[in-house]
């Protein structure tokens, strides 16, 4: 509560707005996928919003972000244009990646947002490289890399942790532990089970565990990690315990987990708990939250219209952007 009371009310309202923006964006994406307007693979971020919003909200504009294929939330939290994100999912020329990346590959160089990477764990080296460039050029930047519990079994995870720690690279490793790598519970595919406390020890890193359903807790943990990385002490490792309410992708019938588990986590839905706390403690009135909800819903409707009205990429685009 103290954290909440200290925070500015405009900030609290904005954190809610961002989480709600992601929630509605994702719900609409699910609908549009059903209608065939969005194709390919679609991985929804519903349930995990507090992570992207909380962690990114404490970064500076010059900091870098690299993420995995469940990337809509991070893109929107970073302030990528909602219209252009939606247009990307529609495969239109106005998309953030000119319609060449799709859902899993959102990029925006102007916001230091480096994707959207769809080979599990394939983005760890990129995060190290961006951090190396910052360190080499004596720039005051940190790199925040989001990853899931499935990716910690990849060689790149261990190699990147070693490299980052060895060279004291300013990287924040942010594990969104949503308990399942596709349909595999972490404990079924990982010798150390679902406990990630020791995951950084071999590389001289402590793991700070945080409630990934609590946006303020995420902010606090990421702030501390960013300070550590910025001070030259090397990388930091956060494990956020979180949950995706939907399946892995739209193709997932979710047969591997029970209804009660989902219900348990739904009670901790940040889009339920956070606004409730704000109202109950008189920090942001319900009326204001309603106004934000309406504004966000209008923004998403507008984004869908923008995407639908946008042109398809012309045939000339096929051979563009291969070489600089």
């Amino acid at each position: 509560m103290k954290v909440l009371e200290r925070a500015k009310k405009t900030l609290l309202a904005d954190l809610f707005r961002q989480m709600y923006l992601i929630r509605v964006f994702e719900e609409k994406c699910g609908e549009l996928y059903g209608k065939g307007l969005i194709r390919g693979f679609l991985h929804l971020y519903i349930g995990q919003e507090a992570n992207a919003v909380g962690a990114i909200s404490v970064l500076r504009p010059e900091d870098h972000i690299v993420t995995h294929y469940r990337d809509h939330g991070h893109a929107l939290a970073r302030g990528l244009d909602v219209n252009r994100c939606m247009a990307e999912l529609f495969g239109r020329a106005t998309g953030v990646s000119r319609g060449k990346g799709g859902s899993m590959h959102l990029f925006d160089a102007s916001r230091n947002f480096y994707g959207g990477h769809a080979i599990v764990g394939g983005h760890f080296p990129l995060a190290c490289g961006l951090a190396l460039a910052a360190q080499y050029k004596r720039e005051d930047r940190v790199v925040l890399v989001f990853f899931g519990d499935g990716s910690v079994n990849q060689g790149t995870f261990h190699e990147a942790m070693n490299l980052a720690s060895l060279w004291r690279l300013p990287v924040i490793f942010y594990l969104e532990n949503n308990l399942y790598g596709m349909g595999s519970a972490a404990g079924r595919v990982r010798a150390a089970g679902s406990d990630f406390q020791g995951a950084g020890h071999a590389y001289g890193m402590d793991v700070v565990t945080v409630d990934g359903m609590d946006v303020m807790a995420v902010r606090e943990a990421t702030q501390a990690a960013a300070e550590r990385a910025r001070s030259g002490k090397g990388p930091a490792f956060i494990e956020a315990k979180t949950f995706r309410f939907q399946g892995h992708s739209m193709a997932d019938p979710v047969k591997y987990r029970g209804h009660s588990e989902v219900e348990h986590w739904r009670k901790r839905d940040p889009l339920v708990t956070f606004p409730r706390t704000l109202v109950e403690n008189g920090l942001v009135p319900e009326k204001e939250l309603d106004r934000i909800r309406k504004e966000v819903e209008a923004t998403i409707d507008e984004a869908i219209k923008f995407a639908e009205d946008s042109p398809w990429p012309g045939p000339e685009a096929v051979n563009e952007d291969i070489y600089a």
């Binding site: 080296p125 995060a127 190290c128 490289g129 961006l130 190396l132 460039a133 050029k137 790149t156 490299l163």
Partner: peptide, 16 residues
């Protein structure tokens, strides 16, 4: 760690 050091080099190239 070939995959990672080459990937880091690529990342640093993207980073300037």
């Amino acid at each position: 760690s070939e995959n990672t050091f080459v990937g880091a080099a690529i990342g640093s190239a993207i980073g300037g």
